[in-house]
Amino acid sequence: MSGNGNAAATAEENSPKMRVIRVGTRKSQLARIQTDSVVATLKASYPGLQFEIIAMSTTGDKILDTALSKIGEKSLFTKELEHALEKNEVDLVVHSLKDLPTVLPPGFTIGAICKRENPHDAVVFHPKFVGKTLETLPEKSVVGTSSLRRAAQLQRKFPHLEFRSIRGNLNTRLRKLDEQQEFSAIILATAGLQRMGWHNRVGQILHPEECMYAVGQGALGVEVRAKDQDILDLVGVLHDPETLLRCIAERAFLRHLEGGCSVPVAVHTAMKDGQLYLTGGVWSLDGSDSIQETMQATIHVPAQHEDGPEDDPQLVGITARNIPRGPQLAAQNLGISLANLLLSKGAKNILDVARQLNDAH
Rank of each mutant, 00 (worst) to 15 (best):
I21V: 13
R22V: 14
V23A: 15
G24C: 09
G24F: 01
G24R: 00
R26M: 00
S28G: 11
Q29M: 13
Q29C: 14
A31G: 08
A31Q: 00
R32Q: 14
R32G: 11
R32H: 07
I33N: 11
I33D: 11
Q34M: 08
T35N: 04
T35F: 00
D36I: 07
D36Y: 10
D36H: 13
S37D: 05
V38C: 09
V39D: 03
L42F: 09
K43M: 08
A44G: 12
A44P: 07
S45W: 11
P47G: 08
G48F: 10
G48Q: 14
L49P: 08
Q50W: 00
Q50I: 07
F51Q: 06
F51S: 06
I53M: 09
A55L: 10
M56W: 08
T59D: 14
G60H: 02
D61P: 04
K62P: 03
I63K: 04
L64D: 07
L64P: 12
D65R: 13
L68K: 13
L68P: 08
S69P: 11
E73G: 06
E73P: 07
F77E: 01
K79R: 11
K79T: 10
E80L: 06
E80A: 11
E82K: 07
E82P: 01
E82Y: 05
A84L: 07
E86Q: 12
E86D: 13
E86G: 07
E86M: 09
K87L: 11
N88S: 11
E89A: 11
V90C: 10
L92H: 04
V93R: 10
H95G: 05
L97P: 01
L97W: 02
D99T: 02
D99Y: 02
L100V: 08
L100C: 15
L100R: 00
V103N: 09
L104E: 05
L104F: 09
P105R: 10
P106R: 12
G107T: 01
F108W: 14
T109N: 05
G111L: 01
A112M: 02
A112Q: 07
A112P: 05
I113G: 04
K115P: 13
E117V: 14
D121Q: 01
V124M: 12
V124W: 05
F125L: 11
F125I: 12
H126E: 13
K128I: 12
F129E: 15
V130S: 04
G131E: 09
G131T: 08
K132F: 14
T133H: 07
T133M: 12
L134T: 06
L134C: 07
E135F: 11
E135L: 13
T136F: 08
L137T: 04
L137W: 02
P138R: 10
P138E: 15
K140W: 14
S141L: 10
G144A: 11
S146C: 04
S146D: 04
S147E: 03
L148Q: 11
R149Y: 06
R149A: 02
R150P: 04
R150F: 00
R150G: 04
R150L: 00
R150V: 05
A151G: 12
A151Y: 08
A152F: 04
Q153T: 05
Q153D: 01
L154E: 03
L154Y: 07
R156F: 05
P159I: 08
H160K: 14
H160I: 11
H160A: 05
L161C: 12
L161H: 11
L161G: 04
F163D: 03
R164F: 08
R167W: 07
R167Y: 08
N169A: 06
N169W: 05
L170V: 11
N171H: 12
T172D: 03
R173H: 03
R173D: 01
L174Q: 05
L174V: 10
K176N: 08
L177D: 03
E179M: 10
Q180A: 14
Q180H: 14
Q181R: 14
A185S: 05
A185V: 07
I186G: 05
I186R: 03
I187H: 01
L188S: 05
L188K: 01
A189H: 00
A189R: 02
A189E: 03
A191P: 02
A191L: 01
A191Q: 00
L193M: 14
L193H: 03
Q194I: 01
R195E: 03
M196E: 04
H199V: 14
H199R: 11
N200Q: 00
R201N: 07
R201D: 12
V202H: 02
V202C: 12
G203M: 03
Q204V: 12
Q204I: 01
H207F: 08
E209G: 07
E209T: 03
E209M: 05
E209Y: 14
E210W: 15
E210Q: 06
C211S: 12
Y213T: 02
Y213D: 02
V215W: 00
V215I: 04
G216D: 00
G216Y: 05
A219N: 00
L220T: 11
L220N: 03
G221T: 06
G221I: 13
G221D: 02
V222T: 01
R225I: 05
R225P: 14
K227F: 03
D228Q: 15
D228I: 02
D228P: 15
D230H: 03
D230L: 02
I231P: 01
D233V: 07
L234P: 02
V235L: 10
V237Y: 04
V237M: 08
L238A: 01
H239G: 02
D240L: 02
E242G: 02
T243A: 02
L245I: 12
L245D: 00
R246L: 10
C247N: 06
C247T: 06
I248V: 07
A249M: 03
A249W: 02
R251M: 10
L254P: 01
R255K: 03
H256I: 04
E258R: 01
G259F: 11
G259T: 13
G260C: 15
C261W: 07
C261I: 00
V263W: 03
V267Q: 02
V267A: 05
H268V: 15
A270N: 04
A270W: 06
M271W: 06
D273H: 06
Q275D: 05
Q275H: 14
G281C: 11
V282I: 06
V282S: 05
W283R: 08
L285D: 14
D286S: 08
S288D: 14
D289S: 11
I291A: 13
Q292P: 07
Q292Y: 05
E293G: 14
M295C: 03
M295R: 13
M295T: 06
A297W: 11
A297S: 06
A297K: 01
I299C: 15
I299F: 14
V301D: 12
P302A: 12
A303V: 04
A303I: 15
Q304T: 07
H305L: 11
H305C: 14
H305P: 03
H305Y: 14
H305I: 14
D307T: 05
P309N: 15
E310G: 12
E310D: 06
D311N: 12
D311P: 09
P313Y: 15
P313C: 06
Q314F: 13
Q314S: 06
L315Y: 00
L315I: 01
L315E: 00
G317Q: 01
G317K: 00
I318D: 04
T319F: 11
T319K: 04
T319R: 01
A320M: 05
A320H: 00
A320P: 06
I323F: 10
P324D: 15
P324Q: 10
R325F: 14
R325M: 01
R325T: 09
P327T: 07
L329C: 03
L329T: 14
A330Y: 00
A331S: 05
Q332D: 07
L334Q: 01
G335A: 04
A339M: 01
L342P: 02
L343R: 14
G346H: 05
A347Q: 13
K348C: 01
K348N: 15
K348R: 15
N349R: 14
I350P: 00
A354N: 02
R355M: 15
L357V: 10
D359Y: 14
A360T: 14
